[in-house]
């Protein structure tokens, strides 16, 4: 028996909006520690890892580890029917091939339940090694989204270079080139507006902008985004989910041949 009750149902709505266009079908894994997902996009260039810890749920019952295969587009369609202030409960009986989403309005005067068929998805879990990053960038998530959007109107790949001066996002295309430099700025009145660069050593990597733009769909989840870079390994773009967990996007770099 599985019953997860999330008072801040809008978090789950936002999570689905941020992954449904990147990944079609995925397994949600439920265990005593929490509700998680790990899935690659169809071209195996990007990977998303989601964790919602059990403590973040108002009620978390998971009698045994269970993996539920879902079509994320259909799941998003059902979650769109939940109000932003609704409490969302996810229920599944042992051995059942469906999952039920229950939406309760804050005043409990409206209760809806949507039942979705589960799928069999054979997805291998990948081991993600803990890496020492050459550069860690913490910046306002809206700013990062704006940079990715603006640069993708000029070119389709971005070179992200981190030096002690700051971080530079560069692109080039048929119509010309664009460079955006963000300097470390911690003299802001609100901490979430700061741009922090921890850079043990300079690094420069090239990525496809369309994936970064897809990752920025998670912007509504957090005011800040953490971008961790190391030479020759995937970048990690992480959005914290209100002291419940995180959503991490990994993107393989484009490498000089």
């Amino acid at each position: 028996m599985l019953e997860l009750r999330l008072v801040q149902g809008s978090l789950l709505k936002k999570v689905l909006e941020s992954i449904k266009d990147l990944v079609n079908d995925a397994n949600f894994d439920c265990s005593a520690t929490g509700f998680s997902l790990q899935a690659m996009d169809s071209s195996h260039v990007a990977l998303v890892a989601l964790l919602l810890r059990s403590e973040g749920f108002e009620h978390y019952r998971c009698d045994r580890n269970i993996s539920m295969g879902m079509n994320l587009g259909n799941m998003a369609k059902m979650l769109k029917c939940a109000g932003n202030d609704d409490i969302i409960t996810l229920k599944a009986d042992d051995g059942s091939d469906t999952v039920t989403f229950m939406f309760e309005s804050p005043t409990q005067d409206k209760i809806a339940d949507f039942e979705m068929r589960l799928m069999d998805i054979d997805s291998e879990h990948l081991g993600i090694p803990e890496a020492e990053y050459h550069a860690i960038l913490i910046m306002p998530s809206a700013e990062f989204a704006r940079i990715c959007k603006d640069l993708s109107s000029i070119g389709d790949t971005v070179v992200i270079s981190v030096t002690k001066e700051g971080v530079k996002f560069s692109t080039r295309g048929d119509i010309g080139t664009a460079n955006v430099v963000c300097r470390q700025n911690t003299t802001v009145d609100k901490p979430e507006e700061a741009t922090v660069i921890e850079m043990p050593e300079p690094v420069s990597l090239t990525f496809a902008l369309r994936y970064l733009n897809s990752f920025t769909k998670a912007t509504p989840l957090s005011n800040t985004v953490t971008i961790s870079l190391s030479s020759e390994i995937p970048v990690v773009v992480e959005y914290k989910i209100a002291e419940m967990g995180y959503i991490r996007f990994y993107l393989a770099p484009k490498i000089e041949e």
Binding site: M40, S43, H44, V45, A46, L47, E124, H125, L126, G127, I128, P129, T157, T206, A208, I233, P234, Y250, L251, A252, P253, K254, I255, E256, E257
Partner: peptide, 14 residues
């Protein structure tokens, strides 16, 4: 030219 690499060449099957 920049060749797009794949996640699976960095993360092995657990």
């Amino acid at each position: 030219v920049n060749q797009q690499s794949q996640i699976t060449s960095f993360f092995s099957k657990a």
